[in-house]
Design a protein around this nucleic acid. Structure first.
Lengths: 337, 337
DNA sequence: TTGTGAAATCGAAACGTTTCAATAAATAAA
DNA sequence: TTTATTTATTGAAACGTTTCGATTTCACAA
């Protein structure tokens, strides 16, 4: 009742061998005689011996594990990101564990993984983990790749999506179709993503020398509810714009919902475009024109960089990944002359 | 260059104290003098000391961590499940890490976490992890809760969703609306979920003493593509049923897609209902009548049970959670007389 | 027999903590 | 002052592995 699980010592005792011999045998070291190895294996089996990975990691001073920290595990489009990381990690014989940072008090899980060196490397896409924490945790023995955030510190590397270009292209798309009065709906005011998408929008608007609308200054929190409210507000004001560029899909969908309710037609009365290409965007009615972010690539590239860094290459430039415009039915398909 | 990171020994050396004193000081043990503690803290700060969690875990012989194993992290509706687990774990001062089992060779990540006692408990919803592995890993010091699978072994507990009742209710819903010729579209033939949903369907059909259709015996793999093929097949055969009960939403959506393409109207020509209530189901056109599984509750209950088990309570019965019928527009809203 | 080199096994140290029993220092009581 | 008591600090052991240098065993040639 005392000892719940057999250790290597127990195996050694039963097999009447030294602990070290058992260890060698279990690790298939050619130095142990074949007959001995068989005996060890038998005894281990009989005792239901399982190596203790924690002890192994302590001795080895590494964990062969990387982690990916996300604000909300299982958010709408992290699936591909995780897959990207996992594929690369697996092919490097590393394990991947994921942890959400949003749940409870910040830090708990994240801090344990990062600063208590329970992993050999980390990839972070979680706006709620502050720079401070990341800088603090990063080190030669624990490189960190941050996604969608610029952080120029040693042992921290970044992978970015070209939000500005994405914003530019989708706005340009609207302008090419003949829309002129285009409103931008922003996310939270502290969101860099939202800011960059706005810059792209501004750039395109300036190019067409159309008077750019004043920035719609509502903190939509990037949520569907936020979008819904904005939609109500816009339609209540009486004068609808030609088109709306929402800084993310969720808000765009909220806006669409509010318009549908009061009979405003999309895209006949007003066009709506979003950003992110979340799975639902294909299924809403009408389907949403939006900008795809290469989530899988982002994960894969981040992991690649991480492994290069773990192998001592510290001369790594930030990577900027391209976006892709996805044209669907919430913007009209012909040019209005 | 040799030592990359400061250990407690380094702190002790610099502070001219014994290692044990430093340890006590860092853990706020009241036995150390306040002034000493302050000095230790200062030195630790200066040396950028971070405790090594692995060493701590080894000594403590527990990790204060539970894991949740999913086939596909970030699948469409695991978000809530993870949240449920995480909330309960956090309130028990435990950390949660998640790992996908689908990625590469089975075992790698999962085996490391489970059998190398890197976690104190586990929750598993991953059909690709076989019973063998789970039985092997479970133990007094590592209870496991399995979701959506029955496994009557010591130290393994199960939480199930009442798939049969869900299947019964949705079929009953169709029957009440006047549909009689109802086809069931199944998932993979080895899926227990699919089987149970079928049983519910059968039960309702028998109750109405209508001749039940022969089971549609296509392995839809629970995928949208599978559903699409089945839809093509059904319409090609010329004689459409009144209604289709698809064992999951993804297949239902695939079927809908194929029908829309050739002008079959839903629900006028044929009704379609699904199962799972994935986020998209609300947004497809028409919106999909389906059965909600209480994912958050499932996660929370599983975690509750896990913690009870970790605290020595081993008399835990399997839990069966109720489903909820969600009526939308893919089935008609009035009774046909 | 003895010696030799290779093959097999072993003991001890190390990884970085925590913890317990023991000692040392400081304070109170005699 | 001396003794008893409390308060602070310490050294060593332990957690379960791996690894390295040392030692033993063995087969075979001299």
């Amino acid at each position: 009742m005392q000892k719940i699980v057999a250790t290597i010592k127990d195996v050694a005792k039963v097999a009447k061998l030294a602990v070290s011999t058992v260890s060698l045998a279990l690790n298939n070291d050619p130095r142990v005689k074949e007959s001995t190895r068989r005996r060890v294996l038998e005894v281990a089996q009989g005792l239901q011996y399982r190596p203790n990975g924690i002890a192994r990691d302590l001795k080895a001073r590494r964990t062969d594990t990387v982690c990916i920290l996300l604000h909300d595990l299982g958010g709408p489009f992290y699936s591909e990101l995780i897959r990207g990381v996992q594929d690369v990690a697996t092919s490097n014989k590393y394990n991947t564990i994921a942890s959400g940072t949003g749940g409870g008090q910040i830090g708990s899980a994240a801090v344990r993984l990062l600063s208590e060196r329970r992993v050999d490397g980390a990839i972070i896409l979680a706006p709620d983990v502050d720079d401070e924490t990341i800088i603090h945790a990063a080190g030669k023995d624990l490189p960190i790749v941050v996604l969608d955030r610029s952080l120029l510190v040693e042992n921290v590397y970044s992978v970015l999506v070209d939000n500005e270009r994405g914003g530019y292209e989708v706005t340009r798309h609207l302008l090419n179709l003949g829309y002129r009065n285009i409103v931008f709906v922003s996310g939270p005011s502290d969101s860099l993503d939202s800011e960059l998408r706005y810059r792209g929008y501004e750039m395109a608007m300036n190019e067409f020398q159309t008077q750019k609308s004043k920035r719609f200054d509502y903190c939509g929190h990037f949520t569907e509810e936020g979008g819904y409210s904005i939609g109500r507000l816009l339609s209540a004001m009486g004068t609808l714009p030609d088109a709306i560029f929402s800084a993310n899909d969720e808000m765009a969908i909220g806006i669409m919902k509010s318009f549908v309710e009061i009979g405003i037609r999309i895209p006949e009365d007003v066009a709506i475009v979003g950003f992110d290409n979340i799975p639902i965007s294909e299924y809403v009615h009408p389907s949403l024109t939006t900008v795809r972010q290469p989530m899988y690539d982002m994960g894969a590239v981040a992991a690649q960089i991480l492994f290069q860094a773990m192998n001592g290459n510290s001369e790594l430039q930030p990577v900027l990944l391209p976006t892709e415009l996805i044209v669907r039915n919430s913007s009209r398909s012909e040019i209005r002359t």
